[in-house]
Design a protein around this nucleic acid. Sequence first.
DNA 1: GTATTCGCTGAGTATGCGCTCAATGACAAT
DNA 2: ATTGTCATTGAGCGCATACTCAGCGAATAC
Lengths: 188, 188
Amino acid sequence: MNKRTKQKELTKQNIFDTAMCLFLRRGFIEVTTAEIAKEAGVAHGTVFVHFPTREDLVLAVIDSELATAQQRIDRLLNKSSDFLTLASSYLDYLAEHEDFHALLARELPFYKPELRNRIIFRQALIQMQFTDLLKEEPNATYIAQYLFGMTHYYLSMREAFSTEGSVIQRFKDSMMVTMKTMMGGFGQ
Amino acid sequence: MNKRTKQKELTKQNIFDTAMCLFLRRGFIEVTTAEIAKEAGVAHGTVFVHFPTREDLVLAVIDSELATAQQRIDRLLNKSSDFLTLASSYLDYLAEHEDFHALLARELPFYKPELRNRIIFRQALIQMQFTDLLKEEPNATYIAQYLFGMTHYYLSMREAFSTEGSVIQRFKDSMMVTMKTMMGGFGQ
DNA sequence: GTATTCGCTGAGTATGCGCTCAATGACAAT
DNA sequence: ATTGTCATTGAGCGCATACTCAGCGAATAC
């Protein structure tokens, strides 16, 4: 491969990595293209050589993160056969990737409808797979809604809780207890 | 009172009312001062005669809405003695003022820390009063967290659910059933 | 009736953003 | 060695926004 072509790919990767790092730390809305360029050590214009618009860069990062997330969750779904185990693993996964998911929870309402719907669609798919695992349970929908609703709530409120470490980890036990209760409690 | 002074107050009130209307419909972030001026039928500069900065105007509207909310909730708290009745009235109240509360749920993470903390503090106070009503209940905290967490979730996801009418109303029954179960279910 | 005050005006300023493009020079092709 | 290509540069454009201020004219003070 050309030295020039190789350098070009390196530069693109550098911009992409820098952008991802900044976006995950401070959000897709706040970080500017000038800042990404400066942090990556390239000229402002170079960003637009590799990503024609800012939105293209945002989409590239989001797509990459979503793909990783999807893989991880598919693995969880294949491994776990009962709902509570799956829920527990899912919470661990969220805690591990909390930056990205807190970001989505906060900023999702401000994304362009097309992107927002794509993200919501993915989350709805995951939610359905969880609900499937609850099919013997008469109130599967309530329990799944609880899991996704409360995690969304804790994630979007992360700053307010001002916890050291993960909010999801902090509230995991309380959520697990509640879901256990809900599974036994209905219809009695 | 002076005709001049009276006119001044009228203009200020006009700007305030127009701003409130626009803010509640489209959010505190999106609406511009130029738009408020145009909609109110005054010059752009006039806005800044009465509210030195845009933020002052935003704060005035938020304070006014929060004060109204506080009054309404205090009335609810005085009227209801058991938790489930209170929760039901609270959900009705939220459904009625859904525009404002959905707005807060969406935009809160983007407000300046000082304002954000003030709003969160008020909500924490209300949450505590709810928890107090649950003091015989061993898992009061979980149930209150459920109520406030899930309402926050539904409010912030309002656009995604794309419901005609109120999201809170739509999910009220499911939330009430769940809380009833949680109250009976723990420790069994 | 005249002078003064002051609410209001709207063109203009400062700032910050995404994005452009002529110029540059290292690399590739011959 | 010469010429052509193209990744990179960074000053600058267009636009949007919050905010300013000299000036106007109606209300007020005398």
